[in-house]
């Protein structure tokens, strides 16, 4: 069960910023708290899952398998950030591995599909602002992903000395 100050925490979370106090209290009730010990893997790429997570304390590392034991670090997420929403919506396996960074334990708030559907049904107006904020974040992440693709491509060109100007 989340602590009473969860609603207060949610006030600063971007996807809930347009929520009224009553809406926030309802969301707080729908969330469950989960702790991940430092260094522990919360979920792996390819796992099934129908929950999204909000980081309350600590930092998680988001990574994607490259080869053998090597993964590429895609992002780090701290308090107020969320992840896992893709599987929540498209029911596909997890697209990345999430692990608590080695410095401290991580506290997460978990929202499952049933709770989300109940919230949408009970308060469509709040749901609309939630999805609007979600789309804003998706756009930012998409931009970051395209930047990352460009950065990785540049790395490859610099690392190999490949000259494509003249090709």
């Amino acid at each position: 069960m989340p602590t009473p100050d969860v609603a207060e925490f949610l006030r600063d979370v971007r996807i809930f910023q347009a929520f009224s106090d009553a809406d926030l209290a309802a969301v707080a009730l729908a969330l469950r708290e989960r702790t991940v010990r430092k260094g522990q893997v919360l979920l792996r790429e390819g796992d099934a899952g129908e929950e999204m997570f909000l980081v309350r304390r600590g930092v998680v590392v988001v990574s994607k398998a490259v080869t053998g034991p090597v993964e590429q670090v895609l992002a780090r997420m701290g308090p107020g950030n969320f992840f896992g929403e893709m599987s929540l919506f498209d029911r596909e396996p997890r697209s990345a591995t999430i692990q608590a960074e080695g410095d401290s334990d991580v506290t997460l708030l978990v929202l499952d599909r049933a709770s989300l559907e109940a919230l949408i049904e009970a308060n469509p107006r709040a749901a609309a602002s939630f999805f609007h904020a979600l789309v804003q974040v998706f756009i930012e992440r998409l931009r970051a992903s395209t930047d990352l693709v460009a950065e990785v491509t540049r790395w490859g060109l610099e690392a190999t000395g490949l000259d494509v100007d003249a090709r």
Partner: peptide, 24 residues
């Protein structure tokens, strides 16, 4: 800036399973 890749390299645990920690 100079391009760099940030990689997370997993270490196998004593029993050969994953969860043996990692290094960035």
């Amino acid at each position: 800036r100079r391009a760099k890749l940030e990689l997370l390299v997993r270490k196998p645990s004593a029993d050969g399973e994953a969860e043996g920690g990692y290094e960035v």
